[in-house]
């Protein structure tokens, strides 16, 4: 049993932190690419900015400024600083529900990224600065995993994180391999950057060796059962956590659970040959829209349900 408002806040903490981590990584890969060949750098920056939803070639050319804005620009609703501020604001509202260890990780991160010298700290070592943010986010996850009860609150936190992850990875792949664009990404360095953005390079190399191929990337990031950032992995966990939180809802299968089960099955029974023959776009679009439906259904079922249905007779 937990307050509906609290469940909602925990869910959004999960979403915002996942977003902050993903965009930190995009910024990091952009910065890294500037060290290599220049046209690969621009292509990498373009991929990253498109994945954020801002495909601006002029901005992509000024990679460093674009990366810095992605991390620190408070005018940009997608920036890491905004995501972290919103996550922390939600955490403050449910401060009684999360452990002190977890809260302090997040609060520290927030205080650092909103401090007056954040910009200066970024400039004096941008890559190190971003790595620290990602490491702190991992510490938050570790502290949450180690100190919070893995009950209902935890499941809402995880639901937010995995739904956000599935959508972010789908978006990233859509940018690189969707149809109707000015050509799919084929450059080897850009492909490696893509894997880095998905935090997937090392696990990919172990699985497929250093042969970087589009087919394998799609197979790994969409269908892999064990890689925690594959879409299939995320949808499996979304379903698992929904089964967990729906146990107490009266009457039959709750809508979010049904939707998640269907999406999971869809990914279970598709394979990379199908993607290659009909193009990745259709499946990726389904993932994005189904995740949005699950998101709405979670809100309707657990948070903003109509009171008339629940009043005692």
């Amino acid at each position: 049993m937990m307050l509906a408002r609290v469940a909602d806040s925990l869910y959004w903490i999960g979403r915002y932190l996942e977003r902050a981590e993903h965009f930190s990584r995009l910024a990091d890969v952009m910065l890294n690419a500037t060290l290599d060949r220049s046209d690969a750098a621009a292509q990498t920056a373009y991929i990253a900015l498109s994945a954020v939803g801002d495909p601006d070639m002029a901005r992509a050319a000024r990679t460093y400024e674009a990366a810095k804005a992605l991390v620190l620009d408070r005018e940009d609703p997608n920036s890491v600083v905004i995501s972290l501020s919103l996550a922390r604001e939600n955490a403050r509202q449910v401060r009684d529900q999360i452990t002190t260890e977890t809260w302090e990780r997040l609060n520290l991160l927030y205080l650092r990224i909103t401090s007056d010298n954040a910009s200066q700290a970024f400039e004096s070592g941008s890559s190190a600065y971003i790595h620290e943010i990602i490491a702190d986010l991992h510490q938050f996850k570790g502290a949450a995993d180690a100190t919070m009860s893995h009950g209902e609150g935890w499941r809402f936190l995880m639901l937010g994180a995995y739904l956000e992850r599935a959508q972010l990875i789908a978006r990233l792949l859509e940018v690189c391999f969707g149809d109707g664009r000015d050509g799919n990404v084929t450059d080897r360095i850009a492909l490696m950057s893509l894997l880095r953005m998905g935090c997937a390079l090392e696990p990919y190399l172990r699985r497929y060796t250093a042969e970087i191929e589009t087919r394998h990337i799609l197979e790994f990031l969409v269908f892999d059962e064990e890689f925690p950032r594959s879409i299939r992995f995320a949808t499996t966990l979304i379903e698992e956590h929904l089964v967990g939180v729906s146990r107490h809802v009266e009457g039959g299968l709750a809508t979010p659970e049904r939707l998640a089960g269907r999406l999971k099955a869809r990914l279970q029974y598709a394979d990379v040959d199908e993607l290659e023959s009909v193009g990745a776009s259709a499946l990726l679009a389904t993932v994005t829209s189904e995740c949005a439906r699950i998101h709405d259904a979670i809100f309707d079922t657990f948070v903003a349900y109509s009171l008339e249905m629940k009043l005692p007779a």
Binding site: M1, M2, E152, V245, F302, P312
Partner: peptide, 16 residues
Amino acid sequence: VVHENMVYMRTTTGLR
């Protein structure tokens, strides 16, 4: 929420 002079809180699984 107050209903028939009873106070309830909105939880994820209904009113308590």
